[in-house]
């Protein structure tokens, strides 16, 4: 069983390749440069180096968001098209769940998040139970302020995993005090190899059905629905 994993949902570009329970390759960069340009050359290089041809792949795993709209679309489009064209299934995995995997030895709550501007974050709440990562509060877009009061009531330590942690560190500590725990810096960014673990714990899906998880409507749609509702109330 050979699986290719792709994550382009943030500035991190991650690619991993596994054969059974052996990680053949894992490649990560974290800087602001075009995923569209760099993803396929990187996949090509990794597969060539370990001597795996595309035809040998059994499945493709991908982080499907939430995250950068464009970034997520590049990963999802690449993954679903490769999978469909090869006639193999695809695993669409939450980008937050992927991030949460980095808290695998933490005994409390795990809160992966990324900044969604205007005081909002993309987040969810996870926890390892019997060494399996469980989603305890669904992925969402939420005001950080509102989210922190949810976490406060949990009354247990919360591990924060995020590339945007510095921006919100003071705000989080201000509310949660000692309850807030921050990971070491390498764990603040997603590792593509973790996608392969998650793929092993979930059902695969048909490539056509894979779509990004945006967790919110496009701006134009929000306005359109708001206007429609306004008209209905008149």
């Amino acid at each position: 069983m050979k699986i290719l994993a792709i994550d382009t949902s943030t500035h991190v570009m991650g690619i991993a390749l596994s054969q059974g329970d052996k990680l053949l390759a894992e490649y990560t960069t974290n800087f602001k440069k075009n995923h569209s340009l760099r993803l396929m050359p990187a996949i090509h290089q990794i597969m060539e180096e370990v001597g795996v041809s595309p035809a040998e792949l059994d499945a493709v795993a991908v982080a499907k968001g939430p995250g950068s709209y464009t970034g997520v679309r590049i990963g999802v489009t690449t993954a679903k098209t490769m999978a469909w064209s090869l006639g193999i299934p695809v695993y669409g995995i939450s980008s937050l769940q992927l991030q949460a995997r980095n808290g695998k030895h933490f005994p409390g709550w795990i809160c992966p998040f990324s900044d969604a501007r205007r005081g909002q974050i993309y987040t969810g709440l996870y926890r390892f139970r019997d060494s399996l990562l469980r989603e305890e509060e669904k992925d969402r877009i939420v005001l950080l302020e509102d989210w922190l009061s949810v976490l406060k009531e949990k009354n247990e330590p919360v591990l924060f995993l995020s590339q945007d942690w510095k921006k919100h560190e003071l705000g989080i500590k201000g509310v949660l005090k000692e309850q807030a725990v921050f990971a070491d810096f390498p764990d603040m960014q997603p590792r593509p190899g973790e996608l392969l673990v998650l793929a092993g714990q979930m059902p695969a899906q048909e490539a056509h059905t894979l779509a990004p998880e945006y967790t919110q409507m496009a701006e134009a749609e929000k306005k359109w629905y708001a206007a429609k509702e306004g008209r209905a109330h008149e």
């Binding site: 569209s36 396929m40 595309p54 590049i74 489009t77 690449t78 993954a79 098209t81 490769m82 064209s85």
Partner: peptide
């Protein structure tokens, strides 16, 4: 640009998959 990216990445993925 956002629309072009979908076509380009899909074409690259299919072309790469089948060399």
């Amino acid at each position: 640009v956002g629309a072009l990216l979908i076509g380009v990445n899909a074409a690259k993925a299919a072309a790469f998959a089948h060399q």
